[in-house]
Measured scan of single mutants.
Amino acid sequence: KKYKIKVYVKDKKTKKWKKIKEIEVDTKEEALEAIKKLPPNYEVKIVP
């Protein structure tokens, strides 16, 4: 079972969220580790 991490950042001009990358991992633990490495201003969604 794979997890997709969708990473969004808020556009300063439009104030809208835009997706900047998608990370695919195998476990939820890996997903949480990957999220920890991202800057705090990123919004993250984990999709099972």
Rank of each mutant, 00 (worst) to 15 (best):
T14E: 04
D26R: 06
L38M: 14
V25S: 03
E24M: 13
D26G: 09
P48L: 15
E24Q: 14
T14K: 11
K10A: 05
V47N: 05
V9E: 11
E22T: 15
K6A: 09
V9L: 11
K10I: 13
E30T: 03
L32C: 15
I5G: 00
I23L: 12
K10T: 05
E33T: 11
K45M: 10
I5H: 00
N41L: 09
K6H: 15
D11P: 02
K2D: 04
Y8H: 01
Y8G: 01
I20A: 04
K2Y: 10
Y8P: 00
Y42L: 08
P48I: 15
Y42D: 02
K13L: 12
L32G: 04
T14G: 08
E33D: 12
I35D: 00
E43V: 15
P39F: 06
T14W: 04
K12R: 09
I23H: 04
K6V: 14
K28V: 11
K21D: 13
K18I: 13
L32E: 09
K1C: 05
K18R: 12
P39A: 06
I23N: 01
E22A: 02
K6M: 15
P40M: 05
K28P: 11
K16D: 03
K1A: 12
V47P: 02
I23D: 02
K18M: 09
I35S: 05
L38H: 02
K15Q: 15
D26P: 04
K19W: 10
V9H: 07
E29V: 07
A31I: 14
I5P: 00
T27H: 03
P39V: 03
D26F: 09
K6Y: 10
D26V: 10
K36D: 06
E24L: 14
I35K: 04
K36G: 10
K37Q: 13
P39K: 08
E24N: 12
I23S: 02
V44H: 09
I20R: 04
E30K: 06
I5N: 00
E29S: 10
V44F: 14
A34I: 15
N41R: 11
L32V: 12
E33G: 06
E33R: 07
V44E: 00
T14M: 07
E29M: 13
L32R: 09
D11I: 05
E24W: 12
T27P: 00
K18E: 05
T27L: 02
K2H: 14
Y3H: 03
P39T: 05
E43D: 07
I5F: 08
K18F: 06
I5C: 04
K18P: 00
K21Y: 14
K45W: 08
E30Q: 13
L38W: 12
T14A: 07
K16L: 09
V47Q: 07
K21R: 12
Y8R: 00
K15H: 14
I35W: 03
K19C: 09
N41Q: 11
I5R: 00
I5W: 05
K16M: 07
K15M: 09
Y8W: 04
A34S: 06
N41F: 12
I23Y: 12
L38D: 00
K13Q: 11
K12C: 06
Y42E: 04
Y42N: 06
K2V: 10
K45N: 07
P40I: 08
K10F: 11
K12S: 09
K15R: 11
K37D: 13
I35E: 02
I35T: 05
E24K: 06
V25A: 08
P39G: 09
K1P: 12
E43P: 07
K10G: 03
Y3N: 01
K18L: 06
V25K: 03
L38G: 01
V25F: 14
K1Q: 11
K15V: 02
Y8D: 00
V9N: 05
D11S: 09
P40F: 06
Y42W: 12
W17R: 03
D26M: 07
K12Y: 12
K13A: 14
A31T: 04
W17E: 01
L32K: 10
T27A: 02
A34E: 14
Y8T: 00
Y42H: 11
V25C: 07
I5D: 00
V7N: 00
I46H: 02
E22W: 03
K10V: 10
E33P: 01
K19G: 02
P48E: 10
K10Q: 13
E24V: 12
K6N: 12
K12D: 11
K45C: 07
K37P: 03
P48R: 11
K45T: 08
K13E: 13
K45S: 11
I5Q: 00
P48D: 13
K37N: 10
E30L: 08
K1T: 14
E29F: 10
E24C: 13
I46V: 14
K2R: 12
K16W: 04
K4W: 05
T27S: 12
E30F: 03
V9W: 07
D26C: 10
D11F: 02
V44Q: 01
K2N: 12
D26S: 11
K19E: 08
K37I: 09
K12N: 13
I20E: 03
I20S: 02
P40N: 10
K12G: 11
T14P: 02
E29H: 10
Y42A: 09
K13D: 08
K12T: 09
I20Y: 08
K4Y: 12
K2T: 12
P40W: 06
K28W: 14
W17L: 04
K19L: 12
E43Y: 15
I20P: 00
K21N: 12
Y3R: 01
K36F: 04
N41V: 10
K45V: 09
V25N: 00
L38A: 03
E24I: 09
K37G: 10
A31D: 00
K13T: 13
Y3G: 00
V44P: 03
E29L: 10
A31Q: 02
K37M: 10
Y42P: 01
K4Q: 07
I46N: 01
W17A: 02
K12P: 14
Y8A: 00
E29Y: 09
P40V: 10
W17Y: 12
K4N: 08
K45A: 09
A31F: 05
A34G: 02
I20L: 13
V7R: 00
I23W: 15
E29P: 04
T14S: 07
N41D: 15
I35N: 00
L32I: 15
K45P: 01
K16E: 06
P40D: 09
T14F: 04
V44T: 08
A31K: 01
P48G: 12
A34T: 13
Y8I: 01
K10L: 08
K13C: 09
K21H: 11
V7S: 01
D26K: 09
K18Y: 07
K10C: 10
D11W: 02
V44K: 02
K12W: 08
T27K: 02
V25R: 03
K4V: 15
V7F: 07
K19P: 04
Y3I: 08
K19I: 09
K4P: 00
K36N: 11
K12M: 08
